[in-house]
Design a protein around this nucleic acid. Structure first.
Lengths: 277, 277
DNA sequence: AAGTGGTCTAGACCACTTT
DNA sequence: AAGTGGTCTAGACCACTTC
C-alpha cells in the first residue's frame, strides 16, 4: 500500500563527505551524513520535503478528511528520518490548518465538517449575540459557460463549462447575504440543486465529501456598493442601501483556484470581522 | 544589568522524584530532572515561561524596536535551559511578529519603521498598480474627554483624557480615507499636531519611537455606509456614495487596547484585501 | 575564524487516550 | 500497558554574516 521511502535529498550532509571524526560508535550525525550524496537538482530542508510528501498524500486522498494519519513514529520510519523532522513538518501543516493534532489520539486530516472550520471562511458576525451558521435558500443552480472575468480568476478558458449557483443566506430568518458562485464544471460534475438543498451545513463540507475538493485558503476583496433592485428585493432592504461586496477566490491544494464567490452583505445587524496579527 | 535566572518551574520533572535509573553518567534528562521540585502554583511548559520572560523584556523596553536581542545561546545560559527550548520560545514570538529572525545576524525586535510592517495594518490596496503608503493631511488634533463608547473600547472611564485626531489620507493625490482616532491621554502626553505633521510615515512608527507604545495586534469590524455631507466633501465624492466603514481597536503588549480608529474608505479605486487561511 | 540562526538526530520523560 | 503527541535536552553540522 505504502510506496517506498523514495529519494529524499539532504543537501547539508552531502557537502561534507565524511562523518564526524569524533564519533567512535556511529554518532548522532551518522544517519544524516550517510544518507546519500546524490547530485539532486532541488535543495530544500528535509522537513520541507517530508511536508510536501505528506501534502501529496492528503491531496491524493490517501488519508481523507477527518481520518487519522500515521503516527509520527511510523512516518519517521517510512521516510527514514528522525521523529523530530517529521514533527517539524507536521507542525507547519497544523499551522496551515491542513491537519489537526490531538494529544494522546493522533493527527487528523482537517475537515469542514466541524464548527471550528465554519467560521474560518464566514467572517460575518452578529453585532450582538452568539455567532451561528445561516440557512441557505437556493435561487438558481445551472450549468453554463464561463464569462471572461470568471474564467480568468478560475484559471479556465473563456467559455469553459462552469456551475453557477445563486443563493440567499439568512440569520434567524433575516436575509443577510446574497451570493453568486462559479465552480469549474469539470470538477463539480454531479452537482445539482437537489444535492445542494438536501445537504445541511456549509457547502465546503459538501464539496469536500462529494467532490473530493477541499478548500484550504481564500483571498477576499471587499468594496462598498449600493443595493440594486434585485439585491434589495432578496435582502428585504430599500434600494440604494449600502452593502458590503465581497469577491472571494478559494484555492485547493497546490494553490489551484476552484471557486469564485461574489457576495453582497447587509450590515444592518452584522459586521465583517477581521483580526490583524 | 541582567537579572538572575530566577525561578522557572518544570512541572514535568517535578512529578518523578528521581532521575532515569538507566543513565549511569548523568543522562540527557538529568538537567531537567534535577532542576527543582518546588510546589509552584503555576504549571506551563518551560518554553512558554521563557517566552513570557522575553516578552516582558520587550515590553519593558530592555530591548527596543529594531535592536538585536541576545543570541539563543546567551539566553539559554541566562535562563539555564537548553538552546532548543529558547528556540521554541523565539519561534512563537517570530510567528506573532514580535521579533524577526535573520540568519547569520541574530534576532531583532520588530519595528513599524519598515515597509514590511506597514501593510500589516493597512489593508486598502489599489485595484491596479503597486501598493504604496498614502499621504496624510491632518484636519484636527485636540485633547478632550472620552465619550462613553470610546471609553468602553479603550478600557477607560467615561470622561478620561483622550487625544482626538482626524485626518484624510490620499493615494496619488486622491483622497481615499478619512479617519478619526482616539488615544489614551495618559500614554500620549506630548502628542501635538506639529509632531504629527513633521513625522513622515505611519503613525505607528511615531507611537513606537516617541511614546514607547508598540501596536502588536488589532481587531477590525467592517460595515457599509453612505457618505454624509462631511465625508463626501473630504473624500471628494458625491453625498450618499457607498463607503466602507472600519472600526479598529489596536492592542499593545498584554492585550491592552491603546487606540480606537474609525475610518471611512472610498472603494472607487481601492479594495480591502483579506486572506483567509 | 568566530558568531548567529537553521536543520537534523537520538533519547528521555511527560500528559493524555485507548485497550 | 501500550500508543499518541508534547516537552526538554545534548550535540553535530549547515548556511550565512561579520570581523
Amino acid at each position: 500500500m505504502n510506496s517506498a521511502p523514495s529519494h529524499l535529498t539532504n543537501p547539508g550532509a552531502a557537502a561534507s563527505g565524511t562523518v564526524s571524526p569524533t564519533a567512535p560508535s556511529a554518532g548522532p550525525a551518522s544517519a544524516a551524513g550517510a544518507a546519500n550524496a546524490a547530485p539532486s537538482p532541488t535543495f530544500s530542508p528535509l522537513y520541507q520535503q517530508i511536508k510536501a510528501l505528506i501534502t501529496q498524500s492528503l491531496q491524493s486522498g490517501e488519508w481523507k478528511p477527518g481520518e487519522l494519519i500515521p503516527s509520527e513514529v511510523e512516518l519517521a520510519a517510512r521516510f527514514k528520518v528522525s521523529q523530530g523532522t517529521v514533527r517539524k513538518a507536521i507542525d507547519e501543516l497544523a499551522a496551515e490548518n491542513l491537519v489537526m493534532r490531538k494529544q494522546g489520539k493522533g493527527t487528523f486530516v482537517s475537515t469542514h465538517h466541524e464548527a471550528r472550520a465554519h467560521f474560518r471562511f464566514l467572517r460575518l458576525m452578529p453585532d450582538e449575540g452568539v455567532p451561528h451558521y445561516p440557512e441557505s435558500k437556493f435561487i438558481e443552480v445551472k450549468r453554463t459557460r464561463a464569462p471572461a472575468d470568471v474564467a480568468r480568476l478560475l484559471e479556465l478558458k473563456s467559455g469553459d463549462a462552469v456551475v453557477f449557483i445563486k443563493r440567499v443566506q439568512s440569520f434567524d430568518g433575516m436575509p443577510t447575504i446574497v451570493e453568486e458562485l462559479w465552480l469549474p464544471g469539470l470538477i463539480f460534475k454531479g452537482l445539482t440543486a437537489e444535492r445542494l438543498v438536501e445537504y445541511k451545513g456549509p457547502m465546503y463540507g459538501l464539496f469536500e465529501s462529494e467532490f473530493g475538493t477541499r478548500m484550504i485558503r481564500a483571498a477576499e476583496k471587499i468594496r462598498a456598493c449600493s443595493a440594486d433592485e434585485g439585491a434589495a428585493a432578496l435582502l428585504q432592504v430599500a434600494q440604494g442601501t449600502p452593502l458590503l461586496m465581497a469577491e472571494r477566490v478559494s484555492f485547493t491544494y497546490g494553490d489551484k483556484p476552484v471557486e469564485l464567490r461574489r457576495g453582497l452583505y447587509s450590515t444592518e445587524r452584522h459586521h465583517y470581522q477581521n483580526d490583524l496579527n
